[in-house]
């Protein structure tokens, strides 16, 4: 190979790696990006069962039921609509009724119950998941000033 050919080979190799990386990133986005919804969006969202989403809102007061040991059910509300959620595992320390929460998971076909595999609660007294705060604000729900991360 001449010097020029070598250089071309190096550049071609580098470019093909980058192209492969770009394709990989696009593929991974298609696989694992989760959109954020509040319960009120779900009616119009037309979700396929099994699509991963993040569901945010407040934990409906009085809705938290601890099942046998590991599975809990609770309702997530944006104060207008409500969605029932089941979750198996240990809920975060700061999971409380009436507080903000984000559940990640999907719906199973033919069942209105949201099956979460991850539940995030606000992380300290002054923290509220930003997504939840924004959306609830848009829905006209005001949080006590201190609770919302602006």
């Amino acid at each position: 190979m001449t010097r020029k050919q070598k250089r071309l080979a190096v550049i071609a190799g580098g470019m093909s790696f980058i192209v492969a990386a770009v394709l990989l990133i696009m593929f991974a986005f298609g696989q694992s990006v989760a959109y954020f919804y509040v319960p009120g969006d779900l009616a119009t969202a037309n979700l396929q069962p099994g699509t991963r989403i993040r569901l945010g809102g407040l934990v409906q007061t009085g809705s938290w039921v601890q099942g046998a040991g590991k599975t809990s059910t609770f309702e997530v509300t944006d104060t207008i609509s409500t969605v029932k959620v089941t979750y198996t595992g240990i809920l975060p320390d700061l999971f409380r009724e009436g507080q903000g929460v984000v559940a990640e998971g999907s719906f199973v076909a033919g069942d209105p119950v949201f099956v979460a595999d991850t539940v995030l609660a606000k992380h300290d007294e002054t923290y509220m998941p930003k997504d939840v705060a924004d959306r609830l604000k848009a829905q006209g729900v005001e949080m006590g000033g201190k609770e919302v991360v602006k």
Binding site: A21, L24, I25, F27, A28, F29, Q31, S32, V33, A34, Y35, F36, R54, E104, D131, D134, R135
Partner: peptide
């Protein structure tokens, strides 16, 4: 609003 979670990074970063 979307979230890009661990699966994305595991797949791309891991393979790369």
């Amino acid at each position: 609003k979307i979230s890009v979670g661990a699966p994305f990074f595991n797949l791309t970063f891991g393979l790369l």
